[in-house]
């Protein structure tokens, strides 16, 4: 017994170091697994509050740019509205009955209060939380394209796992043919992401547009991602397809959060199959 006490006395600092270090490693490993609820995140009141204050100062400097972006998007949407299909037959089209419409996705607005893109695994913090109807695993986009998926959610804030993260696999497809692949990031350049698992017979060309595939329950189909920058082929197989993002991940501000109203149903179906 005395031996043990002596041992502890002798190595007490080393033991303290070991205990604390294992705590730190535990948090690190927990952070690498996606679905676990996390303790260390910036969505809590203190860190979220500080980021909020800082962001309210910072925003002031980007007002001009944001205004231009918003008016650009407005014009785009107005142009879409003014496109009316030709009536091929002379019959006047019937009145729109709202009962015939079914809403699958619901959009929320929000803003990024802390942006990260320099690390290997990047998380963003947004100023929307449970109070505003945000839950985890909702898509986050802006008018240029996809940004990420919500992760930890607190009352007023939430963290977003950026597409610039090791564990981010987004289902995407080519716009001109319906071949699906998966979007990953190799951690090198924040402007370029990689496309993998594309079927070997797919015809691709530099400059082809990549959009979200809608095969996951997070993003609706057709959200912009980027264009093919270059690709390598070995035999028939694709080795590497680099995609240049439409979004500038270093300058993000206003975002939309997409909630899939059918997500619960899809999850239930999928678990029932297993």
């Amino acid at each position: 017994m005395q031996q043990i006490f002596k041992f502890i006395e002798k190595y007490k600092y080393f033991l303290l170091f070991l205990i604390l270090e294992s705590f730190a490693l535990f948090f690190t490993i927990q952070n690498h697994s996606y679905h676990r609820s996390k303790f260390i995140n910036s969505a809590n009141t203190l860190t979220g509050g500080i980021y909020r204050q800082m962001s309210s100062i910072n925003d002031f400097f980007y007002l001009k740019k944001e205004n231009r972006l918003l008016s650009k998007e407005n014009i785009h949407l107005k142009n879409l509205l003014s496109l009316s299909p030709y009536d091929l037959d002379s019959v006047v089209s019937e009145q729109i009955d709202t009962v015939n419409f079914y809403q699958k996705y619901k959009y929320y607005r929000g803003k990024i209060i802390s942006n990260n893109y320099t690390k290997r695994n990047n998380f963003l913090t947004i100023n929307r939380g449970e109070k505003h109807g945000i839950t985890s695993i909702m898509g986050v986009v802006n008018s240029y394209g996809i940004i990420g998926v919500t992760n930890s959610v607190s009352k007023h804030n939430a963290t977003v796992m950026s597409i610039l993260h090791k564990d981010s696999h987004t289902n995407v497809k080519l716009k001109n043919n319906d071949h699906y692949g998966s979007l990953i990031w190799n951690g090198k350049d924040y402007r370029t992401v990689q496309l993998v698992d594309l079927p070997r017979q797919t015809q691709v060309g530099i400059g082809d547009t990549i959009i979200t595939g809608g095969k996951s329950s997070i993003f609706p189909e057709g959200i912009l991602v980027g264009t093919i920058k270059d690709f390598e082929k070995q035999g028939n197989d694709f080795q590497l397809i680099n995609i240049k993002l439409f979004n500038d991940m270093s300058a993000l501000s206003n975002i939309n959060i997409i909630s899939n109203l059918e997500q619960k149903e899809i999850k239930q179906l999928e678990t029932a199959n297993e």
Binding site: L20, E21, A24, F26, I40, I50, N116
Partner: peptide, 28 residues
């Protein structure tokens, strides 16, 4: 001192969503 440095790293981790990597390296 060891405890404070662990706490210092952890505070940075809280802000930057990095799990415990700052805590682990600062403690070391």
């Amino acid at each position: 001192f060891l405890f404070l440095s662990f706490l210092l790293g952890l505070s940075i981790d809280f802000f930057s969503n990095t799990g415990g990597i700052n805590a682990a390296s600062t403690l070391f």
